[in-house]
Design a protein around this nucleic acid. Structure first.
Lengths: 348, 348
DNA sequence: TGTTAGCACTCTACCACGATGAGTGCTAAT
DNA sequence: ATTAGCACTCATCGTGGTAGAGTGCTAACA
C-alpha cells in the first residue's frame, strides 16, 4: 500500500517537526507551521490513518504523534533527499577544524571527536580491520645482547613491534636475508593469509629460523588483535544533552554500552560489507541497551581497500539528513588522509 | 582543640555508617547500631558539638548528620588505620584477575579497569610521564626507496617509530655508525636532556646527518607528547551507581570532566612529587566539576624512578579504607610488572 | 557537672485532589 | 471529502494535608 502525495507530505512534516522540537506533534501545530490548505480535523484524520499504517504512534491518548521506527525507516528511505539540497551542511564543514594527527591513533581519536562535534551525537571510529589489511613490510633489528626487534608494517601504516630473545649465533646479515625472503614471499597478502603462509612455511622447512618465524607469527597475530580491539569513541557526553537520555537509567545503560567496546565493534562491523552509508534505527539495532538509539555507519578506505568503519550513535530522534552528510563527508575525508599518509609514508 | 576519646568514636561511627548507608545518620541509629552506653540525647549533644567544630553538618534541620570535607580529612588522617587490620581486602585481591597485557597500552587499560572493579569507582592511570623517563636505545632502519624508520626506545618500554625521507647516499652502515654514536652519547639521560643534547650537537657539528638528527629530535619530542597525553579511564559507569550522582546534571558534569583528559592529567600530576598514597577530598580538589568527588592517588615506578600516577576517582562518600588499600596494591603490582617487563624486554 | 527523659518544633517525602490545557476521536453538517 | 464542534482523555502542575524522622531545649536526676 503506497501513501498518496499528501500523506507523504504530512508524514514528513510530522517527523521533521518532531526531530526539531522533540515533543509530540499535534494537528494544530501542523496547521500553524505548514500550509496544507486543510483544517486540523482533516490532519487528524490523516494522522490517524498514518498511525493505522504503522508510521506514527502516540505516547498517550491526548498527546500528539511521534514517528515509529518504521516511520523513520520510510522517512530515511523515501522522504529525505540527501543530495539535492545538501548545501546547508557544506558551510559547517568548511569552517570545521581539519584533521591533522600524524599518528594513526591520534587521527582516529580526532576523527571520532570530529564526528561528534558535527553531529551532536557520539562519534565512533573503528581502526582498520584485519580482513582487508595487507602486509606491507617486515624488518628485524638486532638490539643489544640477545634481544631483537621485529617490526611489522601494514598497508594501513600500522607499525607493530615485538621484542624477542634470539640466539647469539644469528647475526644481522642472517636477519636481513630472512626478512627479504619473507618480504618476497608475503608481499601483497592480507594478514590472514600471512598467518596461514607462516604456518605452512614452518611445517615445510624446519630450518634455522623456526623460533624467529614463530615470533613473527605471533607479532602478526598481535597486529590483528590490537587493531580489531581499537574502537575510538568521541563526545559521548554530547548524547546526554538530548532529552531522551534525561533519565538516570538510560544514561547508565548508554554509558555501559559505550564502555563495552567489543559489542560496539560487532555492531559496527555488520555494515562493513556494504559500501555507502547505512542507517540502523532503534529496534533494528541488535543490542538491547541501544534500542533507543540510531546508528549511522559508513566505511573509510585506504589503498583501494575498504579497511574500517566509522559512524555516529545518537538518539532515534536525530537529525538524520545532517548526520548522514557528516558521516559521508568524514568517511571521504578520512579515506583521503589515509591515502595521503600511505603514499607519503610507506610507498616508495 | 583535640577531640576526646568518646567524641572520636562517635565521629568515626557517624562516618562509617554514612559511608555504608549513604543517608544522614541520626542519634537513634547510633544508639541502635553501636554500644556507647549513653542515650540518644547525649549523642545528640555530642553530635551538636562535633558540628560546632566543623566535622559534621546536616542538610536540613530535621535530618541526621553527614560528614563535612573537614570531617573526612580527620577521619582519614586519624581514625582509619590502614595497616593493622587490613586483612579484609587481601582476600579480594587474591582472587582478582591478574594483569597480563604485554603491550604497554593494554596494560594501562587493564590497570584502570582493575582499579575500577576493586574500588567500585572510576580507575585512572596516567602513562609514564616524561621527566623521569629515560632514553634507552635508538635504531635507524632503511626501508625501501628513500624511506627510513627511526626507532626510539625508552626505559619504560615505549617504542616510538617515525618514518622519514632520507638521501639515497646514506647507507645502512652509516646509520649504524650514527646510532651507536648517539647511543653512547645519550645513554642514561632523561628525554628532556636528550632533546637538549641533540640541539647542542646539531649546532656544534654541522655534519652529514643534520636532517636525520632533526628527525630524531622530533621523534623524541613525539614520545613526550604522546606519553603525556595518555590518560586511561576505566569503569567510569561504576561511579554512576552511587546515589550522589543520581541526578542528570551531576552525571553530565562528571562525564564531561572525564572526557577532558587533560584536566584530569593536571589534577593527578599534582601528586607525582609525593611518594605514597594521597587523598584529596571534595573541595580540596581544584576543579569545580569534581567538587563532590574524592581522589585517591598513588605512584607507580619502573626502573627505580617514579614514572607515573594512578588512582581512583569516586564520590566523597567512598569506602576510603578499602580504596586506599586497592590503590596501594595496584601501584605496587604495576611497578612490579613494569620492572619485570623492563628486565625481560630491554635490558641485556 | 554530665546525663537523661520528654516535648515542642521543623522539615522532607508522599499522597490525594483538582484545575489546566493540549490533543484526540467522533458525529453531524457542509 | 472536508470541516466545525463537542465530549472525553490524560499528563502536568500546584496545593494542602499527613506521617515520620530527627533535632534542640528544658527540666529533672545522679
Amino acid at each position: 500500500m503506497e501513501l498518496d502525495e499528501r500523506n507523504k507530505r504530512v508524514l514528513q512534516a510530522v517527523i521533521d517537526s518532531y526531530i526539531a522540537s522533540g515533543s509530540p506533534i499535534g494537528s494544530s501545530v501542523l496547521v500553524r507551521r505548514y500550509d496544507f490548505g486543510v483544517s486540523s480535523a482533516t490532519l487528524r484524520n490523516i494522522m490517524a490513518e498514518l498511525e493505522e499504517l504503522g508510521y506514527l504512534t502516540h505516547p498517550h491518548t491526548s498527546a500528539g504523534r511521534i514517528p515509529t521506527d518504521f516511520g523513520y525507516r520510510y522517512y530515511i528511505d523515501s522522504l529525505i533527499s540527501v543530495e539535492n539540497d545538501g548545501d546547508d551542511i557544506e558551510d559547517h564543514l568548511r569552517e570545521a577544524p581539519r584533521l591533522q594527527g600524524d599518528d594513526l591513533h591520534e587521527l582516529m581519536e580526532e576523527a571520532s571527536r570530529f564526528l561528534a562535534a558535527l553531529s551532536h551525537c557520539a562519534g565512533v571510529v573503528v581502526a582498520p580491520s584485519e580482513p582487508e589489511t595487507q602486509y606491507k613490510h617486515i624488518e628485524f633489528v638486532r638490539l643489544r645482547g640477545r634481544q631483537a626487534l621485529i617490526i611489522f608494517v601494514t598497508t594501513t601504516g600500522i607499525v607493530q613491534n615485538k621484542l624477542v630473545d634470539l640466539d647469539d649465533s644469528i647475526r644481522q646479515q642472517d636477519l636481513n636475508r630472512f626478512s627479504s625472503y619473507l618480504n618476497e614471499e608475503l608481499a601483497g597478502r592480507t594478514l590472514a593469509e600471512v598467518r596461514r603462509r607462516l604456518i605452512e612455511k614452518m611445517e615445510e622447512e624446519k630450518l634455522l629460523f623456526t623460533k624467529l618465524m614463530d615470533e613473527t607469527y605471533r607479532a602478526s597475530q598481535e597486529v590483528h588483535e590490537r587493531e580489531s580491539e581499537m574502537v575510538y569513541i568521541g563526545g559521548a557526553s554530547q548524547m546526554l544533552e538530548s532529552p531522551e537520555f534525561a533519565s538516570v537509567e538510560k544514561m547508565k545503560a548508554l554509558l555501559k554500552a559505550f564502555e563495552d567496546k567489543y559489542k560496539l565493534l560487532r555492531l559496527l562491523d555488520r555494515s562493513v560489507a556494504a559500501r555507502g552509508i547505512k542507517v540502523f534505527i532503534g529496534t533494528e539495532n541488535p543490542f538491547f541497551e541501544m534500542q533507543e538509539c540510531s546508528l549511522v555507519v559508513g566505511n573509510y578506505k585506504a589503498a583501494e581497500n575498504v579497511v574500517g568503519t566509522l559512524g555516529v550513535i545518537g538518539p532515534t530522534r536525530m537529525h538524520y539528513k545532517q548526520v548522514i552528510q557528516v558521516v559521508d563527508y568524514t568517511s571521504k575525508l578520512l579515506s583521503k588522509l589515509l591515502e595521503e599518509r600511505f603514499q607519503r609514508g610507506i610507498e616508495p
